[in-house]
Design a binder for these strands. Sequence first.
RNA 1: GGCGACGUAGCCAAGCGGUAAGGCAGAGGUCUGCAAAACCUUUAUUCAGCGGUUCAAAUCCGCUCGUCGCCUCCA
Length: 487
Amino acid sequence: MKIYNTLTRKKETFSPLEEGHVQLYVCGITSYDYCHIGHARSGLVFDMVVRYLRYRGYKVTFVRNFTDIDDKIIARAAEQGVDSGKLAERFIDEFYTDMDALGALRADIEPKATEHIQEMIELIQELIDKGLAYPAGGDVYYRVGKFPDYGMLSGRKLEDMQAGARVDVNEQKEDHMDFVLWKGAKPGEPKWESPWGEGRPGWHIECSAMSRKYLGKNFDIHGGGKDLIFPHHENELAQSVGANACSFANLWMHHGFVTIKDEKMSKSLGNFLTIRDVLREYPAETLRFLIFSTQYRNPLDFSETALQDAQTGLDRMYDCLAQISRLVLAAETGSDSLIGQKDQKKIQSMRQRFEKAMDNDFNSAQALGHLFDGIKVLNKVCRMLAHQQGSAEDLELLKQAGATIQELAGLLGVLQQDPVQYFQEKKEALLAASSLSEEEINALIAERNAARQNKDWAASDAVRDTLLAHNIELHDGPDGTSWGVKA
RNA sequence: GGCGACGUAGCCAAGCGGUAAGGCAGAGGUCUGCAAAACCUUUAUUCAGCGGUUCAAAUCCGCUCGUCGCCUCCA
């Protein structure tokens, strides 16, 4: 497997420190508001990473933290006149609601910053003892100039940053680039006891402390969004390497942003959609499908059209599976195989091609492409077998192909419903929103069929138009007329 | 100003030195009384532009243009 490493700026062959066991730390949310689509991407990307690594036979220890104490939380709580701890807790619950709705697996360990204050204090003390940090006026700062590798992750030099720096003037810092490890408490703010007085941890220290506690000083993969590279991950790296005097995460994975009209979706721009905004209009599976139709490092432009395209594509996949399951149940078998060698090969190589794509830095877009490629062949085969008897082996191949597609798509968390049921439920949901009942529709169809018997095409078409006006589409097939609701 | 990423058909998106996957939309066909739906087939001599390296470049190098991101909280 190859994974792109932000630290080295290239794809590297992945091999965990401990044979067969991957240790993964991902930066989770700061819990003060509902999650938006960007958080969904983050959650889903690492959900896929974990699922795929496990599929590949690795044991995965997946840690994802919650930042439940922070300036933004305090500010929001003050705004709303609620306790900051309660606010943080509430939005952690909301996070779970959303991630569960998206079908994302939970992390194995989900540490909260406020439950690891002691570990952070110890780490800060170590840094002070090593001369890498200094207390000043109730705060403690990291002495960036003492860490020669500062900037190695984000690829920037201290001098360059200072030149155009937009950092707030802080008289207590020895250097403008120094960052805070511990913040002295102002009146009324949440606080904890520490050797430097009452206060709370800075943002970056929690990840250094918690990753060390749960995964050790040196572990395999550290992940998050691209916006965390600087300063968050750069600072984490400085803290951990500084304190532990050994490598920190061997590989850094950063996913791209969700954009709207090519601009980053963010709170400050106000152009964000929450996960629940989207889930009100579209199934979670559709959102997942959309997110995985772009490789995780590239930007993903979010739009209504993109969502609809994803929905159409997903329906097409389900339709193929539904055809297969109907055929497998109903078809009679003969002795001659109808599936050509080339098609057989395409079908059978699906898994291998999917794996190759995923092995290449989790290229889910290409992996889905291979699945569609297989579906095209399977559709052709289904059509053939619907008209002529194929061999028992033909049906077995179809059945296995359907199961394989569902298994592989499951690594992306899509295509997990029973296909026949999927369309049935969809139909019911749409019908519920329609102005006609099933009985009325059936009565109208009977009426039209009578007209068709009499070759009264005008009357027949009038009924069809009436139904269409209510979003009901008729499908005339060899076995009679069925109907569906137009989406 | 510093650093970085990206620019592939109408739209989305793979491609990582060997001659352009896939999806959506479009066009033709099968089916149909006609349709619709579904399915099948098809759609880039060319990868922002210009140079260079190479037997061979969308892929490597340089420059130009454009878009975006980070440098401040951010997934």
